[in-house]
Design a protein around this nucleic acid. Structure first.
Lengths: 225, 225
DNA sequence: TTGCGGCTCCGCCATTTGGGGGAGACGCAG
DNA sequence: CTGCGTCTCCCCCAAATGGCGGAGCCGCAA
C-alpha cells in the first residue's frame, strides 16, 4: 500500500514540483492538490491522504488555519508537513500547536523531502535544523531571564526563599511555621520582608511572583487532587 | 579547516566505529576519544573540539552530567550530539536542558551521522524523528488535561472564573470589585464560592490553582517590573 | 573587638480575609 | 407559573494577614 500524499500550495509551479518529486517514488502517490486552505480542507476530507504538504502563506485561508481545521476534524491518522520559504519563528510554534508533524524549508533536497514523508508516515516528526534549534532553545532555557526579576530574587535570603515557596503552595503562616519548625511570628517576619523586598503588598501577589519568576513551575503541586 | 570531533563512549568498539565513519570524511577529523564523562570533560578542555559525540550511559560520570559540565564551562563554540541506544523520554529533556544540540539513536546510518555533525557545526540542531515527535507533543499539548482539575474548573460560573483570574493576579477583593464594577461584598461572595467549589481554604491556594490548572500561564503578568 | 546581616521571636494595631447566614432581582427550563 | 441557578449585596464575627517597631542570638568580616 503506497503512501497517499496531498500537496497544498498557492503556486501551481511549486505544487507541481513537489508532486513530481514524490510521484517518482514507487511507494508514494500524490492523490490531490489544492491552491488554498479552504480547498485543502475539502480535498483532505475527500481523499483522506496520509500526509499533507502544506504551505503557510496562501490566499483566503492560510496553511496554519487549514492545518488546525484538518487535524481537529480528521477521523483518520493524517500528518501535516509544513513547507515554508523562510523559517519565521512565530509560525513554528503556531504550526506545531495546530497539529503539524513537521516543519521544513522549501529548499529541502528531493531526497530529504521523500525521507521526511516516510518519517511522518512511520509516526515520526521532522523539523528543519534551524527550527529544531529554536524549539530546543525555547524548551531548554528557563522562561525567566528577566534581570530585574532575578535581581529581586537574589535580594531574598535563603530562608526567605524557603518561606516563599512554602507560601506559594498555599500554606498559611502557621502551617509554614510548623513545616520549618519555627514560631508563627518568625514566619510573619519573613513574609513581611519578602513582600517588602519584592515590592508586593499581599501573599497572593507573592504566589503569582513565585510562578511568574520560575521559582515554582506548574506541575509541581498536586492541588489536592 | 576541517571539523574537529571528539567521540565519547564507554565501549571502545562503538567509539572506534563512529570515529572510523567520521574520519572517512575529508572535512571531519576525530581529534580525541574518551571512555567516561570525566575523561570527556578533560579532552574537551584539551582539544576544544567543534562537536562531541556523547553517549549517555557511562561509568563514573554519565553523559548528561559531562555535557552540562562541558557546555557550562566552555569558552569556545562546542556542540554536543547525544548518542543513545534507546530513546528514553526522561533523558531527552534533561539532555536538551544540559545544552545538547542533538539527540540521535545509535542505529543512525553513517551518512546521517555525518550529515548530523555538519548540521551541528552549521549552527543547526538535530533530533531523531521519534524524539522530535515527543518534543513537539510536549510542546504543543496544553499542560493540563487532568480531568479532575478540569471538572473542578467547570463547576465555576463564568463570573467566578473572572474573579479567580483577577484574584490570581494578586488583586485584593476591593480592587477586583472596582475592576468588575461591583460591590466588595459581591466579590467576597464569589471568592467564597470559588474556594468552596475548588476545595481550597485561602486565596493563596486559589492563585496556585489558577497556575497549576493552566487557567493562567506564566508570562501573562508583569509583576510590576 | 566592633559592626553587620540573618534568623529567631515579641507586642500592638488596622485591615483583610473567610465562613455563616440571608435577601432581592433576573433569566431560563420545566 | 414555579422552581432553580446566577449575580448582586447585606449582616455579623472570628481568624488571618500585613505593617510597625523592637529584641536577643549567632556567625562572619572588617
Amino acid at each position: 500500500m503506497s503512501i497517499r500524499v496531498a500537496v497544498v500550495d498557492d503556486q501551481a509551479l511549486v505544487r507541481g514540483g513537489f508532486a513530481a518529486v514524490l510521484d517518482l517514488q514507487d511507494d508514494i502517490e500524490v492523490v490531490a492538490e489544492a491552491g488554498d486552505g479552504a480547498a485543502a480542507v475539502e480535498i483532505a476530507r475527500a481523499h483522506r491522504p496520509d500526509v499533507i504538504l502544506m504551505d503557510i502563506r496562501m490566499p483566503e485561508m492560510d496553511g496554519l488555519t487549514a492545518t488546525r481545521a484538518i487535524v481537529d476534524s480528521a477521523d483518520w491518522p493524517v500528518k501535516v508537513l509544513i513547507l515554508t520559504t523562510f523559517d519565521p519563528d512565530e509560525y513554528v510554534y503556531e504550526a506545531l500547536r495546530a497539529g503539524a508533524s513537521g516543519f521544513v524549508l522549501k529548499d529541502i533536497s528531493p531526497e530529504d523531502l521523500v525521507a521526511a514523508v516516510r518519517t511522518l508516515t512511520d509516526g515520526g516528526a521532522l523539523l528543519a535544523p534551524s527550527v529544531t534549534r529554536r524549539l530546543i532553545s525555547r524548551f531548554a532555557t528557563p522562561p525567566t531571564l528577566d534581570p530585574a526579576v532575578v535581581a529581586r530574587i537574589d535580594r531574598l535570603t535563603a530562608r526567605e526563599r524557603e518561606v516563599l515557596i512554602a507560601l506559594a503552595s498555599g500554606l498559611s503562616n502557621i502551617e509554614i511555621a510548623e513545616g520549618l519548625f519555627v514560631g508563627a511570628a518568625t514566619v510573619k517576619s519573613h513574609v513581611s520582608s519578602i513582600l517588602t523586598k519584592l515590592g508586593l503588598t499581599n501573599r497572593a501577589q507573592a504566589v503569582a511572583f513565585a510562578y511568574e519568576s520560575g521559582m515554582i513551575k506548574p506541575g509541581g503541586s498536586d492541588l489536592g487532587s
